Simulated assay, not measured.
Amino acid sequence: MNSNEYVFLMDCADFAEAQVIKSFLLSHGLHPRVRDEQTRGVAPHLGQVLGKLTLEIPEHEYMDASLALESKERPSLKLVSTTPLEETQAIAKRSLLNAVLGCVLVPILCNLMSMSMGYRVLKQEVPLSKYSRNKLLLAIVFNSVAFFFWLTIGPKFIFK
């Protein structure tokens, strides 16, 4: 195989995307080409007949091009929460306390409050801290037990 032969690098969604990627690779000193670029530039109505836009690169530049494209697509984790972590953790702790109170003292009402606080924590704290996650999991367990007891067994004791 000749070292100047072009090999497939990627398919592009449209002509504009192909031009942007080609320009990016050219800026890195590489020599990409868009298959049928001349035809598409002169006769864009033939785009459907020609099929997908294929970006090609000389075989000896393939690894450099792949690495350049991958370096632009590195995912980054961003903290989305605007609420201070201490505040959401305090809400998670109150959610657990309300769940426990719902099992013992004020059924249903405390459990509903606990669930709404848990929802607030899940909505505000992204990603969820280990502390909040543990408190919310315990609150779910207590809420489940309380709802089961007060909605199935509780009425038998109350209305005897």
Results as ranks from 00 to 15, higher is better:
residue 43 A to M: 04
residue 132 S to P: 01
residue 35 R to F: 00
residue 87 E to N: 10
residue 112 L to Q: 10
residue 134 N to S: 07
residue 80 V to E: 12
residue 51 G to F: 09
residue 41 G to T: 02
residue 104 V to Q: 06
residue 89 Q to T: 08
residue 36 D to I: 05
residue 54 T to S: 09
residue 90 A to S: 12
residue 90 A to V: 05
residue 66 S to C: 03
residue 62 Y to A: 05
residue 45 H to A: 11
residue 40 R to C: 00
residue 75 P to Q: 12
residue 47 G to D: 06
residue 107 P to N: 11
residue 42 V to S: 03
residue 120 R to Y: 04
residue 110 C to G: 14
residue 80 V to M: 15
residue 129 S to A: 06
residue 48 Q to K: 13
residue 63 M to C: 09
residue 134 N to G: 07
residue 131 Y to V: 05
residue 89 Q to L: 06
residue 55 L to E: 06
residue 93 K to S: 02
residue 71 S to P: 00
residue 74 R to T: 09
residue 37 E to R: 10
residue 53 L to N: 10
residue 60 H to T: 07
residue 97 L to H: 10
residue 118 G to A: 04
residue 100 V to M: 05
residue 87 E to K: 07
residue 78 K to D: 03
residue 37 E to Q: 07
residue 101 L to D: 12
residue 136 L to R: 04
residue 97 L to S: 14
residue 48 Q to S: 01
residue 80 V to I: 06
residue 61 E to G: 00
residue 92 A to R: 08
residue 129 S to G: 08
residue 126 V to R: 09
residue 136 L to K: 11
residue 107 P to E: 05
residue 93 K to Q: 11
residue 113 M to R: 09
residue 52 K to R: 01
residue 130 K to L: 12
residue 117 M to D: 14
residue 105 L to S: 01
residue 33 R to L: 04
residue 135 K to H: 13
residue 134 N to Q: 11
residue 126 V to S: 07
residue 58 P to W: 01
residue 32 P to M: 00
residue 69 L to M: 03
residue 40 R to L: 01
residue 137 L to T: 15
residue 65 A to S: 09
residue 111 N to R: 12
residue 51 G to W: 07
residue 58 P to F: 00
residue 125 E to I: 02
residue 76 S to L: 03
residue 70 E to T: 03
residue 59 E to A: 03
residue 59 E to T: 02
residue 106 V to K: 13
residue 122 L to W: 14
residue 107 P to F: 10
residue 44 P to C: 01
residue 65 A to L: 06
residue 85 L to W: 14
residue 45 H to R: 07
residue 109 L to C: 15
residue 107 P to Q: 15
residue 134 N to D: 02
residue 137 L to F: 13
residue 120 R to C: 13
residue 59 E to F: 14
residue 88 T to S: 07
residue 92 A to H: 08
residue 114 S to T: 03
residue 68 A to N: 08
residue 108 I to T: 14
residue 111 N to T: 15
residue 69 L to F: 04
residue 116 S to T: 15
residue 76 S to P: 10
residue 105 L to E: 09
residue 77 L to V: 06
residue 134 N to F: 14
residue 94 R to A: 08
residue 45 H to W: 13
residue 40 R to I: 00
residue 74 R to E: 02
residue 40 R to S: 01
residue 52 K to L: 10
residue 129 S to M: 04
residue 43 A to K: 02
residue 86 E to R: 08
residue 127 P to D: 00
residue 55 L to F: 04
residue 33 R to G: 00
residue 96 L to V: 14
residue 45 H to M: 02
